[in-house]
Amino acid sequence: MPEYELDRKDIEQFKKDFDALLDGLREHLIGQREAAWFVVATFLSQGHILLEGNPGTAKTFLAQLLGQLTGLEMSRIQGTPDLMPGDIIGSPMIQPGAGEWQWRDGPIFGGNLIFVDEINRMNPRTQSVTLQAMQEGSVQTLDRQAGDSGEKRLKRPHMFIATMNPIEQEGVYPLPEAQLDRFTAKLILPAPTEDDLLKIMDRYADRHATRAALADIGPCGRWPKESNRMERSEQAQGILTEMRDVINAVEVGALDRDIATIVRGTTPLVADEKAAKDSPRHHVQYGGSPRGAQALLQLARVHALTEERAAISRSDIEFVLIPAMRHRIQLKYEFVVEQGTSEAAAVERFLQQLKDSV
């Protein structure tokens, strides 16, 4: 049972805060309406998001807008094959004249919104740094001031917004399943329509126009506007903690069984386990984990609140199902070939079939 009891004012305040961010994103972001919704939902539920799309589909702009609208700092990590863990974490540097070593933080400690561009171009050793940070909110360093363990915490609040470019083939390292599983949702950003391209050219003639637009955007709603960065972070953490209590108070009822059945249905059959011949599970190489169930539950709760309801419905689960689960599933190669389509499309078809069977 939820420890926090919802009332009507809680729901109205949540929707007001949610809509302020969403409207702010959609006011400046042309197209990508689904991505905007899930970025806000993931941020408020204190998760991480993976954005996949061709160059120029506003992945970076989306992250920058979120930073401007919340007043939170954004730090950027550009993924390249030769990027090393020390380039992200930081390293000890000798102070000129003093002859002493002093730790210098890397970009992973530099902002609340940690934007990792082209994360799949980082080598596995460097990817492992984000693996620990996303789960634990801290990383191991050589900073003596961090104590004997060397464990240094990220800023609070923090959110990883990572991107992948699907057309790159060389110098790419597929993300391990354990890292993919740490993302609350994965969004595939489509290319803009012809009408959207016309709007983009009309509003943002070049990159300078985009920069000028960002400079004029400030925190919306009740997000902190103080000039002191530490105070902004503390106030934002307070707002997010309050909103997390509201999210966790949304009733689930008997639908928790549906979520468990769906997530279990994405996993392969184990020894001596039987399933109907037409069960989708026969085609699964690996599937969702408890983190997948948690992501599905939390995003469904957020959707219910945006619909001004204190309990989730089946429609909430269906709305968030594909973004919450698509990156946690790998289907068997022969099944994907039989489908005659891409693996991403095959996974979406699989999830639709699974949803209809529950």
Score class of each variant (00 low, 15 high):
residue 91 S to Y: 13
residue 83 L to Y: 10
residue 19 D to H: 12
residue 97 G to Y: 03
residue 15 K to L: 10
residue 35 A to Q: 07
residue 42 T to E: 04
residue 85 P to S: 07
residue 115 F to N: 12
residue 40 V to A: 08
residue 29 L to R: 10
residue 49 I to V: 12
residue 108 I to G: 02
residue 108 I to Q: 01
residue 108 I to D: 03
residue 53 G to Q: 03
residue 27 E to Q: 15
residue 71 G to F: 07
residue 81 P to A: 14
residue 97 G to F: 01
residue 51 L to K: 10
residue 38 F to C: 00
residue 122 M to Q: 01
residue 91 S to H: 14
residue 110 G to W: 01
residue 57 T to E: 02
residue 121 R to T: 08
residue 46 Q to R: 15
residue 74 M to G: 06
residue 60 T to Y: 07
residue 63 A to D: 05
residue 112 N to I: 05
residue 118 E to A: 01
residue 115 F to K: 06
residue 59 K to W: 05
residue 51 L to W: 11
residue 89 I to D: 09
residue 11 I to E: 08
residue 59 K to V: 01
residue 17 D to K: 07
residue 107 P to V: 01
residue 72 L to C: 06
residue 55 P to A: 08
residue 92 P to M: 11
residue 78 Q to W: 03
residue 61 F to Q: 04
residue 46 Q to L: 12
residue 76 R to T: 05
residue 51 L to P: 00
residue 70 T to P: 09
residue 108 I to K: 00
residue 15 K to E: 12
residue 90 G to S: 02
residue 33 R to M: 11
residue 46 Q to N: 14
residue 105 D to R: 12
residue 76 R to K: 08
residue 18 F to S: 03
residue 96 P to V: 09
residue 17 D to W: 01
residue 89 I to E: 11
residue 35 A to M: 08
residue 114 I to P: 06
residue 56 G to S: 07
residue 28 H to F: 13
residue 84 M to C: 00
residue 118 E to D: 03
residue 104 R to M: 13
residue 98 A to W: 08
residue 100 E to I: 11
residue 46 Q to V: 14
residue 107 P to G: 02
residue 8 R to S: 14
residue 33 R to S: 15
residue 98 A to C: 02
residue 26 R to W: 13
residue 65 L to F: 09
residue 71 G to M: 09
residue 6 L to G: 12
residue 22 L to A: 03
residue 104 R to H: 14
residue 52 E to P: 08
residue 108 I to F: 06
residue 88 I to M: 06
residue 61 F to N: 02
residue 66 L to D: 04
residue 108 I to M: 01
residue 90 G to D: 06
residue 68 Q to K: 15
residue 67 G to N: 07
residue 30 I to M: 04
residue 38 F to Q: 01
residue 70 T to D: 10
residue 20 A to N: 11
